[in-house]
Amino acid sequence: MNHRDHLLSVIDALTATGDVVPADTRPVEGAVVVGSGDSLSSALLAQAFGHRALSSGDITFLGRLPVGTQTVVGISHSGTSGATVQALRLAREAGVRTVAVTSNAGSPLADAADEVQLVPTLAVDEVVPCAGHLMLGLGVAAVCGVQTRGATSALSTRLRDLAPVVDGAVAALGDTAPRGISVLSLPDLRGAADFWMLKLIEATGVPTRSVALEESGHVDYFIGPEAHLEVQLVGAYGEARHERLARALESTGQTVLPVHIAGDGPDADARDRLLHELAGAVVGTVVAEAAASRWNRPPFRGGAVNMDASHIKLDGQPVA
Rank of each mutant, 00 (worst) to 15 (best):
residue 5 D to A: 14
residue 6 H to Y: 07
residue 8 L to A: 12
residue 9 S to L: 06
residue 16 A to M: 10
residue 19 D to G: 11
residue 25 T to I: 06
residue 33 V to I: 02
residue 34 V to W: 01
residue 41 S to G: 07
residue 42 S to T: 08
residue 43 A to S: 12
residue 53 A to E: 04
residue 57 G to F: 08
residue 57 G to T: 04
residue 58 D to S: 08
residue 64 R to D: 14
residue 64 R to W: 11
residue 65 L to F: 00
residue 67 V to Q: 15
residue 67 V to E: 15
residue 69 T to L: 02
residue 70 Q to M: 12
residue 71 T to Q: 01
residue 73 V to W: 00
residue 74 G to A: 07
residue 75 I to F: 08
residue 77 H to L: 15
residue 78 S to I: 03
residue 81 S to L: 05
residue 84 T to G: 10
residue 84 T to K: 13
residue 86 Q to H: 09
residue 86 Q to C: 04
residue 90 L to N: 01
residue 90 L to V: 00
residue 93 E to Q: 14
residue 93 E to T: 12
residue 93 E to S: 12
residue 95 G to M: 07
residue 96 V to C: 03
residue 97 R to T: 00
residue 97 R to I: 00
residue 99 V to C: 04
residue 100 A to N: 05
residue 106 G to W: 06
residue 106 G to V: 08
residue 108 P to N: 07
residue 112 A to Y: 01
residue 115 E to I: 01
residue 118 L to A: 08
residue 120 P to E: 07
residue 124 V to H: 10
residue 131 A to K: 15
residue 136 L to S: 03
residue 137 G to C: 11
residue 143 V to N: 01
residue 144 C to Y: 11
residue 145 G to A: 07
residue 146 V to N: 04
residue 147 Q to T: 11
residue 152 T to G: 11
residue 158 R to A: 09
residue 163 A to P: 06
residue 164 P to W: 12
residue 164 P to V: 12
residue 166 V to T: 11
residue 174 G to L: 10
residue 174 G to M: 07
residue 176 T to R: 10
residue 180 G to L: 14
residue 181 I to E: 01
residue 182 S to H: 08
residue 183 V to R: 00
residue 184 L to E: 03
residue 185 S to W: 01
residue 186 L to I: 05
residue 187 P to W: 05
residue 192 A to K: 02
residue 193 A to G: 12
residue 203 A to S: 14
residue 205 G to W: 07
residue 206 V to D: 02
residue 210 S to D: 02
residue 210 S to H: 03
residue 211 V to W: 04
residue 213 L to H: 11
residue 216 S to D: 10
residue 220 D to P: 03
residue 227 A to R: 13
residue 233 L to W: 02
residue 234 V to R: 12
residue 235 G to V: 06
residue 241 R to V: 05
residue 241 R to P: 01
residue 250 E to Y: 02
residue 254 Q to I: 07
residue 255 T to S: 13
residue 255 T to N: 09
residue 256 V to N: 13
residue 261 I to M: 09
residue 262 A to C: 03
residue 264 D to Q: 15
residue 266 P to C: 15
residue 268 A to E: 08
residue 274 L to R: 09
residue 279 A to V: 01
residue 280 G to Q: 09
residue 281 A to W: 04
residue 281 A to M: 06
residue 285 T to N: 11
residue 287 V to I: 00
residue 287 V to H: 09
residue 292 A to W: 00
residue 294 R to F: 04
residue 298 P to L: 01
residue 308 D to A: 15
residue 309 A to V: 04
residue 313 K to W: 05
residue 314 L to C: 07
residue 315 D to T: 13
residue 315 D to Y: 13
residue 315 D to S: 13
residue 315 D to R: 13
